[in-house]
């Protein structure tokens, strides 16, 4: 796996799209910090943009990458190595390069603005962890989609829909449900629904370190327990790890039975 991963990473890290991605976040971070001149505001703005852009880029760029490298994958499949080895290698190559690009783009401006010695350093690290996780999860979705269908147009359609669903439609339905059933206790429901969507989950993880604690008490006892103690971080982290594995394991399952 490492061999495939290595060359896949070589390939990716020389891609102009990856450079563009790095540059984008460098400029965004820098602009946020420059305009606000405040790490905390810079961080919250970056959070909003990252939660939107990173899943989108991961899934679209990922689907594109897996479709484009299809013939090369065929060539690799004829070599004396396991299928899953090839697929995992490519998956890690893609997600690692995207993650590196994201980290590099944001770390430089934030370090220049002194995030390491600031009181939001932990929040910042949490943001990076959460967004990198999202990158891995959505790269996983990308490889899964490319394995499910050989029809590129269909694949891109799925990708965009999945992104739209997870970042937008899901929360809309969620909010609507909360309104419709506002007479009922919805706290456990809310937490569960949040856990079921990796984008929401990543957001909550950052917010646990960022500012949701200041809103504590406004809500009910279950929220208080969840957000006010380590329980929240524990449950969210465990669920996030589950999400990290889920698309990859599914992809491997599909990949094993697939006819190339």
């Amino acid at each position: 796996m490492f061999k495939v991963f290595k060359y896949s990473l070589f390939d990716q890290t020389r891609s102009k799209w990856i450079y563009l991605y790095t540059l984008f976040f460098f400029l965004v971070s820098y602009a946020m910090l420059y305009l606000n001149n405040d790490l905390m505001s810079g961080l919250t703005n970056l959070l909003n943009i990252s939660l939107l852009i990173c899943p989108l880029v991961s899934i679209i760029f990922g689907t594109m990458y897996f479709y484009n490298s299809r013939e090369f994958t065929d060539l690799l499949l004829a070599q004396p190595i396991k299928r899953t080895t090839i697929l995992l290698g490519q998956y890690f190559g893609l997600s690692s390069s995207l993650s590196l690009a994201y980290l590099l783009g944001n770390l430089i401006p934030f370090i220049l603005y002194g995030v390491i010695v600031s009181d939001i350093f932990i929040s910042f690290i949490m943001l990076l962890i959460a967004v990198v996780s999202l990158t891995f999860i959505f790269s996983g979705f990308a490889i899964m989609i490319s394995l499910i269908t050989d029809n590129r147009i269909k694949g891109f359609g799925f990708s965009i829909f999945l992104w739209l669903f997870m970042t937008f439609i899901y929360d809309g339905i969620f909010l609507l449900t909360l309104f419709l059933f506002s007479d009922y206790p919805m706290e456990i429901f809310s937490i569960s629904v949040t856990m079921l969507n990796p984008v929401d989950l990543a957001r909550i993880l950052i917010m646990l370190k960022l500012d949701i604690t200041s809103m504590l008490g406004y809500t009910g006892a279950v929220f208080n327990k969840f957000f006010g103690s380590e329980t929240g971080i524990m449950i969210s982290s465990i669920t996030l790890i589950f999400w990290l594995f889920m698309p990859v394991i599914l992809s491997m399952k599909i990949g094993k039975r697939k006819d190339f």
Partner: peptide, 20 residues
């Protein structure tokens, strides 16, 4: 305004949908 009507919706703070 939304959180005043449904406290649980606080969990959606800073989500893209809310921003929109």
């Amino acid at each position: 305004y939304i959180t005043a009507n449904s406290k649980e919706s606080l969990i959606l703070l800073r989500s893209f949908f809310v921003t929109l």
